[in-house]
Amino acid sequence: MNDFYVILTASLVAINCALMGSFLVMRKMVMIGDAISHAVLPGIFIAYMVSGVTTNLVVLAGAALSGILATVLIEWFTKKVRLQNDASIGISYTLLFALGVILISRYGQKVDLDQECVLYGDIELTVLNIREIFSGFYLPSQSVVLMAVLAILLLAVILGYKGLLLTTFDPAFAASAGVSIGVWHYVLMSGVSLTTVVSFDSVGAILVISFLAGPPAIAYLLTERLKTLLFLASGIGVICSILGYYLAKAWDASVAGSISIVIGVSFVLVFFAVQLAKRKQSVISLE
């Protein structure tokens, strides 16, 4: 059952990240996910100091808010200060992450929070926190939260599909038609922030980025439709989670690390497979 719990948790993170990551990859701004996953640290700490517990909605809200604050900062540096977007990301999130580190090291000695956990996660530990959903049916509480977030994201992507598509594909045209680029940017950023926040303490910031960038990038090699890409990226994320989990068991290594490796290796393999298929096709058409 423990295998199932860990795989379930990782798969839910994978699907959430695939939904948001597909849009980020198409907008060429995946690293904003990296920024958010680090920038949540001061929010978590401040929320923790206020509420006194590490796992509850107050902490999630604090984290999500500081994630959104990071995107606002990045937007401000890019638009108003006219700094390059990648430089804006670099400055904003390191500032917030460092602030979090300093707050924890200065005021948080007795606190059960550490930077290591933020980066690498402890997906193996999700099995320690099992909750009875209804009589006789148990799930890790982590995955219950992830399911709630999945429901929110699905709703946002289905209802907001046209707005997200239009502002991603052709922002100037969207604006000319009266569709607010800013509103949709923050809809997406709130989704990314929420996803990152509920994901990183189970799988760690590194796997979150891996999930945000990898499966959508693999799917992008395989399809030419955005809708298909969303489904495909989710499926690929789940498969990589399963493979990664058993790889970790075989190696007796970190689950998050193994899944990241499976994703990275899959990308390279799929890339060469697609190249090979294309070459074969062109040889056939030449004949």
Binding site: M26, K162, L165, L166, T168, F169, D170, F173, A177, G178, V179, Y220, T223, E224, R225, L226, T228, L229
Partner: peptide, 15 residues
């Protein structure tokens, strides 16, 4: 971008 010709033209109807 992963879209078809039809997808792009239909964006003209979105707003």
């Amino acid at each position: 971008f992963p879209a078809s010709v039809w997808d792009v033209v239909s964006m003209g109807r979105f707003a």
